[in-house]
Design a protein around this nucleic acid. Structure first.
Length: 565
RNA sequence: GCGCUUGUGGCUCAAUUGGAUAGAGCAUCAGACUUCGGAUCUGAGGGUUAGAGGUUCGAGUCCUCUCAGGCGUACCA
């Protein structure tokens, strides 16, 4: 439910009745429990416009507030804050219906948006490394979230499958094939070996260069080899996606090469409806206020990634009809996207009303604040990182005797992968992020394990109680009041998270929810002796809705829960 | 040089987009009916939000300058 907008409606109504025309600003959550559940701060802002003192305005609104529905009480405080208390009976009823809803009370969007989420984008020449982690999981979360809210989401994996290095790679692949010793298990090694051949053998180097030209001119033999190479490499990526629980399939792949045939058209169209200029032999667009131009065609006739991105933007806006296009890409490419977006709009490749966004994120650092590398300074392969996460997770599992080795393996995967994802999603995506195994695999603090633990704890209550749950939620104390209000905020949080593409807003919410639940759980016994039936039912219903909300929230983040830890 | 970006307790991060006394978690210290899962909960100490000005009823948040770090900066992606 859209709690905030419902409260806003009540405020707006009071404004109209008070004869104030200005559209009031929105309420916000109270900063402290003493200040109620929500607060309205608009009276101060309106004071100048209306030429009245803010407390007077607040009074006028208060006089016309409707207390027959969701509001129970309102007070004016300080210079003109209006503190609002929700009606416990109303909250309880809303929680009851949310508990019965498969979407925990979250409505499906009435006006869905067609949105492209571009993420992951690995390079086919190499193995996926830690640099792809953030894009893959932030992008996947965004796509999951928008899908859940009801948008029409098109996932796009813009893989790098084109460029000069492929000449070298397929020439080497052909050589290995002839030897009968194709080994593409380790792409990194394959690349190194090919590079070794390239540097050592002039004949091989010539062949590699010749193959580049051949692929580009559509030579079937070379294209066949290239396709084979891409298939295998993509297979490696899919293995990573599977482990990571990222919802990308082959259908989502729109590789760089997909746009090849359109690149010439892009240049031509830029010439006619853009401001293409030749400079030092290259085709450029000089944007006002920018020192460096956007180069779309090299002096030798070759195209660049700006060209491909323009073709992709046009495809997404015109063919796919997307109204929002989000690129989940490293913050360092901010300048590039700023330019490309501007060119795309100015050349009318993308209509004015289409929202183009660069969902930028910071770099992954080690404990010492340096870019994340292996001990010998190489890049860390993503698959190795994930395997390590599972191994480390295994060490945290208590009561290993209770489980079979398969169960431990399964559990470790859920815990380990969840920890890696949650740690990443829980921080502001734009800042650099410090990767720390101990912290992410801890049961304490804002971690996935703490959430999974809370979920399992609730499930254990329901294992113990096997009767029917029939009854109503009765809000009996301040803690239950806060917990249930928090539960009703879920949709508001999801909306804002989607708007800003900032998963950490969702993790912060889940953490606060779980913290509240833990306190509630310590303080308010559910199944203990002496708890009357009515209270028991009420608390079971609250626990149930909490568990469902945790599960749904983690599901959007791509993190699994288990009934038993 | 120019551009973008970051700076919040010892450490890692929040702060509802300009609102009340800047909040959490680690770590530290002190506690909790022999536990509905103690992998939890309660409490304490710890801050001039890098610094200086400005805008206004009100600034961690907006503007200007300074300091410090990171990144980008014409034919790689």
């Amino acid at each position: 439910m859209k709690l905030k907008s419902q409260i806003n409606d009540v405020i707006k109504d009071a404004f109209l009745k008070a004869g104030i025309e200005h559209a009031p600003m929105s309420v916000s959550e109270a900063t402290k429990p003493e200040f109620g559940d929500y607060q309205f701060n608009g009276a101060m802002a309106l004071s100048k416009k209306l030429g009245k003192n803010p407390r007077q305005i607040a009074n006028d609104i208060l006089d016309h507030l409707d207390f027959t529905g969701l509001l129970a009480k309102a007070e004016i405080a300080g210079p003109g804050f209006i503190n609002l208390w929700l009606n416990p009976l109303w909250i309880a009823a809303q929680c009851e219906s949310a508990g019965q809803d498969t979407r925990v009370g979250v409505e499906r969007r009435k006006n869905p948006v067609k949105v492209v989420v571009d993420y992951s984008g690995p390079n086919m020449a190499k193995q996926m490394h830690v640099g792809h982690l953030r894009s893959s999981i932030i992008g996947d979360t965004l796509a999951n979230l928008l899908t859940f809210l009801g948008d029409d989401v098109i996932r796009q994996n813009h893989i790098g499958d084109w460029g000069t290095q492929f000449g070298m790679l397929i020439a080497y692949l052909e050589e290995m094939q002839n030897d009968g010793s194709v080994s593409l298990k380790d792409l990194e090694q394959f690349y190194k070996d090919a590079k070794g051949r390239f540097d050592a053998d002039a004949g091989f180097a010539d062949k590699a260069r010749e193959y580049v030209v051949k692929i580009q001119s559509g030579d079937t033999h070379c294209l066949g080899l290239w396709q084979k190479f891409i298939d295998i490499s993509l297979g490696h990526c899919e293995e990573v996606y599977e482990k990571l629980g990222v919802n990308l399939t082959r259908d989502d792949v729109r590789a760089e090469s997909f746009y090849n045939d359109d690149l010439g058209n892009v240049i031509e169209d830029l010439r006619t409806n853009g401001t293409l200029q030749e400079s030092n032999g290259a085709q450029c667009i000089f944007l006002e206020g920018n020192e460096v131009p956007v180069i779309v065609q090299k002096g030798d006739g070759g195209y660049l990634y700006a060209t491909t991105d323009l073709a992709a933007l046009r495809y997404r806006a015109q063919k796919l009809q997307a109204k929002r296009i989000a690129y989940v890409v490293d913050a360092r490419q901010g300048g590039h996207f700023k330019q490309v977006f501007r060119v795309a709009k100015e050349a009318e490749f993308v209509p004015e009303d289409v929202k183009l966004e660069h969902i930028a994120f910071g770099t992954m650092m080690d404990k010492g604040g340096k870019p994340f590398k292996t001990r010998d300074g190489g890049t860390v392969k993503l698959i190795d990182l994930l395997d390590e996460a599972v191994v480390k997770a295994k060490e945290t599992i208590n009561n290993k005797e209770e489980y079979s080795s398969e169960q431990i393996e399964e559990l470790a995967k859920i815990i380990g992968i969840g920890a890696v994802k949650y740690a990443d999603l829980a921080i502001n995506r734009e800042s650099n992020y410090i990767f720390n195994w101990d912290k992410m695999l801890s049961f304490e603090g804002n971690t996935s394990l703490y959430m999974q633990y809370a979920y399992a704890r609730i499930q254990s209550i329901f294992r113990k109680y096997d009767g029917q749950i029939e009854g109503n939620i009765i809000i009996g104390d301040a803690l239950e009041h806060r917990l249930s209000t928090m539960l009703l905020r879920f949709e508001d949080v999801l909306m804002r998270t989607a708007e800003d593409a900032s998963p950490n807003q969702l993790t912060t919410y889940l953490y606060e929810l779980v913290t509240l639940f833990m306190r509630f759980y310590e303080q308010n016994p559910i199944l203990k002796e002496g708890v009357d039936e009515e209270t028991k039912m009420s608390r079971l219903l609250l626990a149930d809705l909490t568990a469902k909300t945790i599960k749904q929230g983690l599901d959007i983040l791509g993190i699994k829960v288990v009934d038993k830890l």
